[in-house]
Simulated scan of single mutants.
Amino acid sequence: MSKKKIALACSVCGSRNYTITENLNRVERLEVKKFCRYCNQHTLHRETK
């Protein structure tokens, strides 16, 4: 069975910069501060479905 990939979208510009594998144990959406190359700064990235 293949694992689903989920994108992390920048909360400022909305670009989907990072992908992660889906974790079925997590009930809330993941929010991580990561570097956005379009904003050129560290911003909050949220899990998209």
Rank of each mutant, 00 (worst) to 15 (best):
M1V: 04
S2C: 03
S2N: 08
S2T: 05
K3L: 08
K3M: 05
K3D: 10
K3Q: 08
K3I: 05
K4N: 04
K4Y: 02
K5S: 07
K5C: 05
K5R: 12
I6W: 00
I6N: 00
I6G: 00
A7R: 01
A7V: 00
A7D: 04
A7T: 03
L8M: 08
L8A: 02
L8K: 00
A9G: 02
A9P: 02
A9R: 06
A9H: 02
A9I: 00
A9D: 01
C10H: 04
C10N: 01
C10A: 00
S11T: 10
S11W: 02
S11L: 01
V12F: 03
V12T: 10
V12P: 00
V12L: 08
V12N: 13
V12W: 02
V12D: 12
C13N: 06
C13M: 06
G14T: 05
S15M: 07
S15Q: 11
R16S: 11
R16M: 09
R16A: 12
R16E: 15
R16H: 09
R16G: 04
N17L: 10
N17H: 08
N17Y: 03
N17R: 04
N17M: 07
Y18V: 01
Y18P: 02
Y18E: 07
T19E: 14
T19M: 13
T19S: 15
T19L: 14
I20R: 15
I20G: 01
T21Q: 14
T21L: 14
T21G: 08
E22Y: 14
E22P: 07
N23P: 06
N23M: 09
N23I: 07
N23Y: 10
N23V: 07
L24S: 15
L24F: 11
L24H: 11
N25E: 15
N25R: 11
N25C: 06
R26Y: 06
R26F: 07
V27E: 15
V27L: 06
E28N: 14
E28M: 12
E28K: 10
R29W: 02
R29I: 03
R29G: 12
R29D: 13
R29Y: 05
R29E: 12
R29L: 10
L30K: 12
L30S: 11
E31A: 09
E31H: 04
E31Y: 03
E31D: 08
E31L: 03
V32D: 11
V32A: 13
V32K: 15
V32I: 14
K33C: 10
K33D: 14
K33V: 14
K33N: 15
K33T: 12
K33R: 12
K34S: 09
K34C: 11
K34N: 12
F35C: 03
F35H: 09
F35N: 07
C36E: 03
C36H: 01
R37L: 07
R37M: 11
R37F: 11
Y38L: 14
Y38A: 08
Y38G: 09
Y38R: 08
C39I: 08
C39E: 09
C39F: 03
C39Y: 05
C39R: 01
N40V: 06
N40S: 09
N40P: 01
N40K: 15
